[in-house]
Simulated scan of single mutants.
Amino acid sequence: MSVPTARRAHAPAGRKVTGNQDPPVLSAEHTEPDRVAGLPCPTCGNPVTLSADQHAILLYAAAGLTYSHIAYHLDWTDARVLHHYTALRKTLGAQSLPHAVSIGCRAGLIPPILPERPLSVLNAAQLRVFTLIAQGLGNAAIATAIGSSVTAVRRVRTQVYQITGQREATAVVAVLHGLNALPASHPCPRASCTAANDLSARTAGADHATIARRWAQRMFQQAELRMRHAAAHRRLADLTMDLARSTRDLNVALRATDEAHQQVLQALHITTATRDTRETAAAALRAAQAADQVAQDAHRTALRAWQTADAANERATRGAGQAMRLRALVAGAQRTWTSAEPDLRHAAEQRSAELGPAREPLPADHRPWRRPPAAATPPERTP
């Protein structure tokens, strides 16, 4: 694509340019300080005039640059670019940026732009789509006008981008105008000039009215379809909510059933434990009674043993006293015998000496002193 020699302003570092065209800038015939004029209108003879800033934006747009790239090359802010773009659309009476580029090409504000490589012939559908784009229509209005879908319109645009090697619709419109592939139309945006061209005005008005009517019908059909879809979604949502409520109620009932089942199991467990506890308590009671009986028997046995032990202790105490008294008597008798034995022996010896030698004993029946034996008295018991 042949583009006018560029004047590039130095932008702040950090911005990145991804366009495939060198940025065009005003040539010598377009560098007036205030206004830039195009070719004279064939009807009224007055040229379309733009400010220098608006003309610069138009040239950059025809080269395929976006708002951010234009702001980068002109060292402007995005807000300033948008301000001048709005004024450009108002001046040219354009509906979109490709429409403004188309009007600029017809008015002589943009020099002819030729492709850098030979292009294959575009088919009728592709030319029809970009003709409507050059008239300011969007994808939805184009789909309504040609009786297709938005997806199909986007697919056609992608095909044309691949054929022309461009990335923006503005650059494709400029190239097609340079090749005279788009139909010619009246470039002047003035109302008086447009009214003077009656045939073109009526044709364009009828065409736009037909497109608008078709677009309105398509929008009405889409709105009705959306309403049906919304009603279906609402019914589906109601059914989903009913199902959710039923599921929630069922879950609540299942949880209540599970809780009741758990309570029944706990009651059975408690009953079983109570029965086992009652049996265990009865067995323990019987064992306690038997142990009490054994303890009573043991107590009586121990009492008897204690009484026996007391009696034995008492007898042992008495026996010990008697033994002590006997030992004392024996000891006294031994002392008496020990002390009286010499005297008795001496007395016996004297008596023997007085009596003389021993005589024969008398017979028993000749003993006059014999007396009957006395009754034996029991010996006195000592305590």
Rank of each mutant, 00 (worst) to 15 (best):
T131Q: 05
T382F: 14
L92D: 09
M241L: 01
L114H: 15
T18Q: 11
R304V: 13
E380I: 15
G45E: 01
A298N: 13
R255D: 13
R255F: 02
I163C: 01
G108C: 00
R167T: 14
Q126K: 05
A37K: 06
Q54V: 03
E354P: 01
N139S: 14
R381L: 08
E360H: 13
T49E: 07
R325W: 09
R167D: 07
I133S: 07
V153A: 02
D249S: 12
D276E: 06
N197S: 12
E116V: 04
L329C: 09
Q162S: 03
T86P: 00
A79Y: 03
N20L: 12
F130I: 09
A6C: 03
A312C: 07
V160T: 14
D310E: 14
N197F: 01
A191G: 08
H261C: 05
R226E: 02
N123R: 02
V101Y: 03
E380Q: 14
Q293P: 00
F220A: 15
Q266P: 00
T170K: 01
Q135L: 11
P383C: 05
P40K: 10
P383H: 14
R318M: 14
S120L: 15
Q217H: 11
A134E: 00
A237D: 14
P98S: 03
T86Y: 01
G45R: 00
A374D: 07
R8D: 03
A37P: 00
R167S: 12
L182R: 10
S68Y: 04
D207Y: 11
S339W: 12
L39I: 05
E116R: 01
A284E: 12
T18R: 12
M1Y: 10
L344I: 10
H208V: 08
S68G: 11
Q135Y: 06
D365Y: 10
D276P: 00
S51M: 02
L122D: 12
S96L: 06
L119D: 04
R214I: 03
P189G: 02
G321L: 03
E354C: 07
V25A: 10
A124I: 10
T86L: 06
V294P: 00
L362G: 09
R213E: 13
A201W: 08
T280G: 08
A290T: 10
L268P: 06
R371G: 00
E224A: 11
L137F: 14
V156R: 01
A256F: 01
A94C: 06
Q266I: 08
D343T: 10
Q263G: 02
R8S: 06
Y161S: 10
A143T: 07
P187I: 05
Q162E: 07
T66Y: 00
L39G: 07
M227G: 08
A171C: 08
S148T: 09
L254K: 10
A353P: 00
R255N: 11
A331M: 13
A353G: 09
